[in-house]
Design a protein around this nucleic acid. Structure first.
Lengths: 128, 128
DNA sequence: ACGTATCATTACGTTAACGTCAATTTGTCT
DNA sequence: AGACAAATTGACGTTAACGTAATGATACGT
């Protein structure tokens, strides 16, 4: 079975981040590694969160925005108080992401067009 | 017909940016407004570039990366020297964007799932 | 001619997201 | 026990992308 907790070094290797980054995320309350004496041990939950954090970053969300979204993913049945507030936030993010998708499709299309133009240009030059 | 050039104020209004941003982009050689005395006049070309700049930003590209991509969009027949180099860059960006699209679809799916869970939870609480 | 608004330049300030370095502490091997 | 590697905690440094404030030139309406 998959090891229950990971030390900082393995965590860094697994996600291609630096120790500094993990400590920084803990300071910002994005991760909550447990302690074995002084050392950090990252749980399965931390790994799930980190995956979402890195994904969020690739989409251009700030760490603070990501922190709020993580609440939605890791909400347990007890703390449903702020659920509706979080849902509203999630809806905005979803709208953002879907708009981003439309734009992305457009941009990919345009870029492909330009690349075809450039490729043809190159070919016509090489056939001099 | 569409006005050939725009002053900084209109440009800001049209694209929802600050004057500082436009001057900054000029300093970074992303835009090349002409001068009327001291004042900047933004051309159609500047408007096209700014549109691409803002789009690039939404996709998480740095201004420097965007600057290099702009070369591809605004290359004229004369300066084809670095074309193939630029094409390589464009290919990397295209791959990036398509990977981003796949991930985005995934993320949208997951987020929707979480939102449905949360919405159902809320409903079951309100029907107490 | 004069006040006002708009633009310009210069320069220093700010925020996010870490990097880097020094000084300790702790576990491990011999 | 001594040495070494690995982790921790400050604390200060860095970069990108502008913000902001001060100062000065231009144009415009009256």
């Amino acid at each position: 079975m998959t090891t229950e907790t990971m030390n900082i070094r393995d965590m860094c290797a697994a996600f291609d981040v630096t120790p500094r980054t993990l400590r920084f995320y803990e300071a910002k309350e994005l991760l909550f590694p447990v302690r074995e004496g002084q050392r950090r041990l990252f749980t399965k939950r931390d790994r799930a969160r980190l995956k979402l954090i890195l994904r969020g970053k690739r989409f251009g969300f700030s760490l603070e925005e990501i922190r709020q979204l993580l609440d939605l993913y890791h909400m347990d049945d007890s703390q449903l108080t702020q659920l509706s507030k979080t849902l509203t936030l999630a809806e905005r993010h979803l709208a953002d992401m879907e708009a981003q998708k439309v734009e992305l499709d457009e941009a990919i299309g345009e870029l492909k067009g330009q690349m075809k133009w450039a490729t043809d240009k190159l070919a016509s030059l090489e056939a001099r």
